[in-house]
């Protein structure tokens, strides 16, 4: 069996301020094998990004506090860290953010930022080789005007171009695990498709695994092997992407799927229930989805369902399947 590349076990994260504590993640477990593309799908406030930040190890500063859980990466324990200064970022785990304008440094040109990516790994690379690597990486992300982009600053580039530059940076470092946090939200449709097919092609090339965070089930359907559906800080369902789409078990997954309009006007109203995602500062007791769930029972209001194995690799947290 393939050893797990990433293994997050019952991770709980709180945001603690002076007057209150908010539970952002509750008992979240996630595992990924080498070469897999795994999606995390959920609406705003479900804790997707917090999970990603915890994995890259930038979360555990106040007000955030990881109260419980462990994270293993490539056989090493990265949280709680066994030894100080274990560096797994860059070659190990790398992340592409939703808004490249905030993740690129505005006062350095693209060239200098790409050079920095090389310097963090191999500062001793000869200059001539560095230039070659930089130019090659930009060509690989299908930028035609390489010289123009190299001398440009992030604000001079379009959204799609900026995202390509951040992908180029990742390419240089060739990480084992690439985390994409809403990489194409806010981009035009055709550009989105191009960026995604670019990422998928590069995946083959640098043989990394991808963790895709998105609110869009349709986008993740086009990329992922497996998917985790999150709601109000918990994983409510996970399994093979195709199976989850074909037969969603959790009522929330079903609702997410039904929310994306598929047909024409005559296909009838979209099957969604009223209400909105809960306020995580005061989540409802029991299953967080019960106020919106059409199949809610008495027990859903009282007790939180646990994630239980169904047939095969499927897991679902819902009292309907007890």
């Amino acid at each position: 069996m393939n050893p797990d590349l990433l293994n997050v076990e019952s991770l709980s994260v709180n945001f603690e301020t002076v007057d209150r504590t908010v539970e952002i993640l509750k008992d979240v477990s996630l595992r990924m094998e080498k070469g897999e593309v795994v999606g995390i799908v959920g609406e705003s406030g479900s804790g997707k990004t917090t999970l990603a930040l915890a994995i890259v190890g930038v979360l555990d500063v106040p007000p955030a506090r990881i109260v419980k859980g462990t994270i293993h990466f490539d056989g090493r324990k990265i949280f709680p860290a066994e030894e100080r200064g274990t560096n797994f970022r860059g070659k190990g785990i790398n992340m592409i953010f939703q808004e490249p304008l905030t993740s690129l440094n505005p006062v350095y040109s693209v060239h200098d930022q790409l050079e920095e990516a090389i310097n963090t790994e191999n500062p001793s690379t000869p200059n001539k080789e560095k230039e070659e690597i930089i130019r090659r990486s930009l060509k690989e992300v299908m930028i035609r005007d390489v010289e123009g982009v190299l001398n440009a600053y992030p604000h001079q580039l379009s959204g799609g171009m900026r995202q390509r530059v951040s992908i180029a940076m990742v390419l240089i470092q060739k990480p084992q695990l690439l985390i994409l946090d809403e990489p194409t939200t806010g981009l035009d449709l055709i550009v989105q498709r191009k960026i995604i097919s670019l990422i998928m092609n590069l995946k083959k090339e640098i043989s990394s695994s991808i963790l895709l965070i998105t609110h869009d089930l349709a986008v993740s359907a086009s990329m992922c092997d497996r998917v985790y559906v999150m709601y109000a800080g918990r994983v409510v369902e996970n399994g093979e992407m195709k199976e989850v789409l074909q037969k969603p078990l959790h009522p929330y997954t079903a609702m997410l799927k039904n929310s994306v309009p598929e047909g024409f006007l005559n296909s009838g109203p979209l099957k969604v229930s009223s209400g909105s995602p809960p306020d995580i500062r005061s989540p409802p007791p029991g299953c967080a989805f019960h106020p919106r769930c059409s199949r809610a029972m008495e027990i859903c209001r009282i007790k939180v369902p646990e994630l239980k194995k169904q047939n095969g690799d499927r897991e679902v947290a819902c009292w309907l399947y007890e």
Partner: peptide
């Protein structure tokens, strides 16, 4: 045609590949 081809939906199973530069 290009827009519709690029659109994400559950029914489109074929993988998109960029045929030309825009």
């Amino acid at each position: 045609a290009e827009l519709i081809r690029a659109n994400f939906s559950f029914s489109s199973t074929e993988t998109y590949s960029a045929t030309h530069e825009s």
